[in-house]
Design a protein around this nucleic acid. Structure first.
Length: 388
RNA sequence: CGGGGCGUAGCUUAGCUUGGUAGAGCGCUUGGUUCGGGACCAAGAGGUCGGAGGUUCAAAUCCUCUCGCCCCGACCA
């Protein structure tokens, strides 16, 4: 992508509306824009990062044997009345009526819908267990939306649900999901802690939270550290299957309620938590798996044809082997470009400048500032090595 | 919802106490000089001061109401 064509409205100064560093940087670096309290537009860079998180989640969920589906956001009140949550959920539930005055809500979570699907499509122990998930926008009328994507009223969430013929099998899948969650957060390069938690309105017997360790976190972790809850996994038991009659026949032809688990990850919150853990005075320092671009090619002087030609050559060579790079072709002084690229957190800068006279370009790491001169011909291979 | 704070140009803001009809920096446009970490000079564009009502000869400024946003608390990915 050419920087000159990309919508990245970076700001020179910190926006007054943001308090915590990750929120400030998301706004300042042009990743998101607020539409209303707790409601944001993801600009091109923000959406790219969101997709990176989603894809890691998707890969690990699929690897763990879960199947992706996509449920509606708009949900009929009837389903929610079956479990009594139409009344219990309270003001946090966005409620609307259609033209016939039928009641609906915007889904804050999907236990009712998934249970409805499974009860109508699975009737035998032979078809259990099954784990289904979706990655979708959720709506919760939070008491106090805050901190950008950290606590929004509309936000992206991966929610998975598992159905079992026994508590033992739920235990097995719960561990399986736990392991998948560890792989996800490991792959994203985050430092996190798993703690036992309250099940809240979701209900159930047992749950654990995955907390990304950060000062800005809303949760107090056992060792005094603060954490941002990015994931929560629950053993639900039969709470929903009993109230909604989601049953199966076992091998003795006896009807039993399915045993359930559910597993959530806040996608935007995870991305923002990553910023809390990875930033410095100059801006964001994305872990490579989350970075909107893996590297940025920066010609120091756009008026010099040889610098532009080399930049273009490296850009194309990178594309050819599947690197996702940003070419900062803007007619700006280097300082402006370097500041912007640092602010948005690109892991590696490929600087095409005076070293070109000796046939070299400069590779500079965002995290350490470490710089390396390499011959043009070796630059892409070297870059690949740096990106791991 | 309780407590605190803030709404002035795209962004950051001065002015408000002590009413006299809006100013700066950054960004943007044009021209020129620059060119390795947010350049410089010159000339410009851009504001019904969140909204409504009131007081007054006169309101960004005072009063009333209202809307929005941020922070702390009770709830959640």
């Amino acid at each position: 992508m050419k920087m000159s064509q990309l919508l990245v409205p970076t700001l020179r100064e910190d926006p007054a509306e943001a308090e915590i560093v990750s929120h400030r940087l998301l706004l300042r670096a042009g990743f998101i824009r607020k539409v209303a309290a707790g409601i944001y537009t993801y600009l091109p860079l923000g959406l790219k990062v969101l997709h990176k998180v989603e894809n890691v989640i998707r890969e690990e969920m699929n690897r763990a044997g879960a199947q992706e589906i996509f449920m509606p956001v708009l949900l009929p009140a009837e389903l929610w009345k079956e479990t009594n949550r139409w009344d219990q959920y309270g003001k946090e539930l966005f409620r609307i009526a259609d033209r016939h005055e039928r009641q609906f809500c915007l889904g804050p979570t999907h236990e009712e819908v998934i249970t409805d699907i499974v009860r109508s499509s699975i009737h035998s122990y032979r078809n259990l267990p099954v784990t289904l998930y979706q990655i979708q926008t959720k709506f919760r009328d939070e008491i106090r939306p805050r901190f950008g994507l950290m606590r929004g009223r509309e936000f992206m969430m991966k929610d998975a649900y598992s159905f079992h013929a026994s508590a033992e099998d739920l235990d097995r899948e719960y561990k399986n999901m736990h392991a998948a969650y560890c792989r996800i957060f490991d792959r994203l390069g985050l430092k996190y802690q798993v703690i036992k938690a309250d099940s809240g309105l979701i209900g159930g017997e047992f749950s654990e939270e995955f907390n990304v360790i950060a000062d800005a976190g809303e949760n107090e972790l056992p060792d005094g550290k603060r954490g941002i809850e990015v994931g929560h996994i629950f053993k639900l038991g039969t709470k929903y299957s009993e109230s909604m009659k989601c049953v199966y026949l076992d091998e003795n032809n006896v009807e039993k309620p399915m045993t359930m688990g559910c597993y959530g990850i806040g996608v935007g919150r995870t991305a923002q938590a990553a910023i809390e853990q990875n930033h410095d005075a100059n801006g964001i320092i994305w872990p490579v798996p989350l970075a909107p671009f893996q590297a940025a090619i920066i010609p120091v002087n756009t008026t010099l044809p040889e610098q532009m030609a080399t930049s273009d050559q490296l850009y194309k060579a990178g594309q050819a082997i599947g690197l996702d790079m940003l070419l900062d072709d803007r007619e700006q002084r280097v300082g402006v470009k370097l500041k912007d690229i640092d602010l948005i957190g690109i892991p590696v800068k490929v600087i095409i400048g005076k070293a070109l006279a000796e046939g070299n370009v400069e590779l500079k790491l965002r995290r350490t500032g470490e710089t390396k001169l390499v011959p043009v011909a070796a630059a892409i291979k070297e870059l690949q090595g740096l990106l791991g």
